[in-house]
Design a protein around this nucleic acid. Structure first.
Ligand SMILES: [Mn+2]
Ligand SMILES: [Mn+2]
Ligand SMILES: [Mn+2]
Ligand SMILES: [Mn+2]
Lengths: 220, 220
DNA sequence: ATGAAAATTTAGGTTTGTCTAAAAAAAAGT
DNA sequence: ACTTTTTTTTAGACAAACCTAAATTTTCAT
């Protein structure tokens, strides 16, 4: 099935919006995510419904059909593989790759993606710790807890992020936090929820609760 | 200046059509090259003229302005660098890369192209022997003669091709002809212009005049 | 339960890039 | 020189993806 760039972006947005448990995604949520007006979203939902990639009942929100989900996961696979390429091979910083991957994810060629995957050594995760789906749309799900909810004095490892905006990534660089870093919560400040953390048994810093919510930890 | 994919493709087509000496390119030639109707081309020429990337006088053909030429060369640079990437890094065959490069050439990011160029070791030529322009649009021009016009018994090297369609490239693979191959013309058949050639001092084959016209040789 | 607020859809338009059919200009043939 | 043919442009339409403004439906608060 051929879908335009725009249609692909709608499917991807719907997928991401339903990631955190929501079954039905709202028109407004989609228009926010894509920077379009709700009226435009309504138009497009009608079209995507026709193509049977979404389940859509007027006024009642939208969800992906199995075939829509498969397409969304293919696009996410391409996005994340290109991000790995940019960081691992072209020496981009992790905060510089998303915009370019937004373009590269729409390149059409199954062989290209297979070969790229192989060239990169079949990476299971992208530079931000997000899992890369395989050709069938399956991916490793890791058990994770937000840093804000881990117990005092427990040692954990950074395995992912909830936010991946350039500003947040640049902050993490500065703080010395990266995917794989060892983190131990030394103290919780009850007043504002900020945390004193020890990074790699070397450096102690203070992070706000907002920051801590967006860092995902695998406890060990 | 921002140009759409479509506008970029028009500029590239105009550039390629004026490569073999022609000063002015015709509406019909462009419509042929892009598989659109002449009426559509007329529309677009008006728009590109407005943007001052082409010189256009009604009924009198079209040429690129300096700024249009610079843009065209940037796109060709990207196209050819991606072709090198696909062949050198992802192990594509030279007849498989053009279509994918047609998509990749429109990815917008100066940094990406700089880094890709560096990653590939600043290649001066693409897999088909075509020169890769640098950031300023300059490229190596090699003296070349069509194989059909080289002298008997002169040793030469394949440095490029006039045709790069998959079918022609596959034929060359089968014949054992590649960029860099040594070729000596052993005999010319006057009747139909076909040639008996010795490849790499190993194998002698017969090639038609049509084939010989499309192989470019550097005499040595 | 009912009126106000919020969310969503419809109606009617715009822009981009395409098309067909018709008109106009240029080139070619005699 | 004057037809005829070819090339090119214009006129009018259409699909995709967006918009604003207005209508409709749902949700929320009293
Ligand atoms: Mn990304
Ligand atoms: Mn990512
Ligand atoms: Mn090519
Ligand atoms: Mn090429």
């Amino acid at each position: 099935m051929f879908l335009s760039f725009t249609e692909e972006n709608y499917l991807k947005a719907i997928y991401h919006l339903s990631e955190d448990g929501k079954i039905d995604v709202s028109t407004n949520a989609i228009s926010d995510a894509l920077n379009t007006k709700p009226a435009s979203v309504s138009d497009m939902l009608k079209k995507l419904s026709q193509k049977e990639v979404i389940n859509y009942i007027k006024y009642q929100g939208v969800s992906l059909t199995p075939s829509g989900k498969k397409i969304a996961l293919q696009i996410i696979r391409k996005h994340r593989l290109w991000e790995v390429f940019l960081v691992e091979k072209l020496k981009f910083n992790w905060d510089e790759v998303h915009e370019i991957a937004e373009q590269l994810e729409h390149i059409q060629s199954n062989l290209l993606i297979e070969r790229l995957d192989e060239f990169l050594g079949f990476p299971p995760f992208d530079p931000h710790g997000d899992p890369i789906p395989n050709e069938r749309g399956e991916m490793k799900a890791k058990k994770h807890t937000p840093l804000s909810e881990t117990d005092l004095h427990n040692q954990g490892k950074v395995i992912g992020l909830k936010e991946t905006s350039p500003l947040f990534l640049q902050y993490l660089d500065k703080a010395g936090i990266y995917i794989g870093a060892k983190i131990k919560v030394m103290d919780k400040i009850e007043f504002d929820g900020s945390l004193e953390i020890l990074i790699d048994n070397k450096k102690t810093i203070l992070v706000s609760s907002e920051v801590a919510k967006n860092i995902l930890i695998a406890e060990s």
